[in-house]
């Protein structure tokens, strides 16, 4: 679209900008990470509603402390508002967003098209995920797709971005400028191979990694030591996943019902013995952030506070990781603002 077409039909829409030198996307998250600052991302609980106000309501407690907000893509195979819808709304309102794509629900034709759609809406970060099996969700009779896996998805979007073509070879006139993310789960089996798989994700195209929950710092430290040995330091930005536990009961439930979550018994016992379990859960989360921050090779934290979003800004403030930095502008930026 030429600039004239844009100003004629959608004057509120900023021009499709190319990233600055040394950047692949120019997203706020990418700039913060490349400046060597400790980044904070946070997961948004997507509404079961068609009202955009509910999206902004959900983003409010995260916006002031997060460099980018993750919009989950039917996480746990439960149906909610789509990630692309949430990212489009938030990006246009001036927030940094991370568009999550799970391979469970859409095939390669749908996904490549959605990536272009998201980029056109100003989305500049994407997180490529395999996705939980349909059986754990609210509609276990659904057909699982898994046409891509997270790595072939990463490589595909990288091909779209860097070579300007679809996987079919057809040309893309304006490639999607996306900062490519992937997940890793350092604390679950096979522990020995998790770092190699991270290396493989970097090879596939990952620019940043958001890990699953880290409650076991010694295991994560061993993982990071191996990651450094593999020479990945400086080649990928790693954001460690953290989150507050509400109670011992909730922690046990998560451990046995949510795939891929490892919580040591000691952590659960500590919450169980506390007079105010929710406060203790928050305290543990803050301590974890402070310990994780000291580990070499960690570039930030990713806060997943499901139904405890109200605690996120306090957790980040008390952990001191932002050092008086204010990540998000709260007002919607005018046209011509930097992309999300």
């Amino acid at each position: 679209m030429t600039d004239e077409t844009r100003s004629e039909y959608a004057p509120w829409m900023p021009a499709y900008e190319e990233p600055p030198a040394g950047h692949v996307s120019g997203s706020r998250l990418e700039r913060v990470l490349r400046q060597g600052r400790f980044a904070v991302t946070a997961e948004l609980n997507p509404p079961d509603s068609a009202d955009p106000a509910d999206v902004f309501e959900a983003a409010r407690p995260l916006a002031e402390v997060a460099d980018a907000i993750n919009a989950t893509d039917a996480s746990g195979a439960n149906c909610h508002m789509s990630s692309i819808g949430i990212c489009s709304l938030l990006t246009r309102a001036g927030y940094g967003t991370i568009y999550q794509i799970s391979c469970r629900d859409r095939n390669r034709i749908a996904i490549q098209g959605d990536v272009l759609g998201a980029a056109a809406m100003g989305v500049r970060n994407v997180l490529c995920l395999t996705g939980d099996g349909v059986g754990v969700g609210d509609q276990p009779g659904a057909r699982p797709v898994f046409d891509f896996d997270s790595l072939s998805l990463l490589r595909t979007i990288r091909t779209m971005r860097d070579d300007g073509m679809f996987l079919s070879g057809r040309r893309i006139s304006r490639p999607p400028r996306m900062f490519l993310g992937a997940a890793e789960n350092p604390c679950v089996a096979p522990l020995d191979w998790r770092p190699e798989r991270l290396a493989k994700k970097v090879e596939a195209g990952a620019d940043f990694i958001q890990t699953n929950y880290i409650f076991d710092v010694p295991v994560f430290e061993r993982f990071m030591a191996r990651v450094r040995d593999l020479g990945l330091e400086g080649r990928v930005f790693i954001l460690a996943g953290v989150g507050p536990l509400a109670s011992a009961k909730a922690a046990r439930w998560m451990r046995s019902n949510v795939p891929g979550i490892h919580i040591p018994d000691a952590v659960i016992e500590r919450i169980e013995k506390a007079a105010k379990p929710a406060e203790e859960g928050k305290r543990i989360c803050i301590e974890l952030i402070q310990q994780i921050r000291e580990i070499r090779g960690v570039s930030g934290v990713h806060v997943m506070a499901y139904r405890r979003e109200h605690q996120v800004s306090e957790i980040i403030a008390e952990s001191g990781v932002l050092q008086a930095r204010v990540p998000q502008r709260r007002r919607a930026a005018a046209a011509g603002s930097t992309p999300g």
Binding site: C103, R104, T130, G131, D132, G133, G135, P144, F146, D149, S150, L151, S152, A183, E184, N185, V188, A189, P190, W193, R197, K200, A204, N212, P259, G260, H262
Partner: peptide, 21 residues
């Protein structure tokens, strides 16, 4: 693999190396 991953494993592997699904 129930998810037919060509580049696995996924993040849902159970303790002891058992399948999520």
């Amino acid at each position: 693999c129930p998810k037919q991953l060509r580049n696995g494993p996924c993040g849902g592997v159970r303790p002891g190396g058992f399948c999520e699904v």
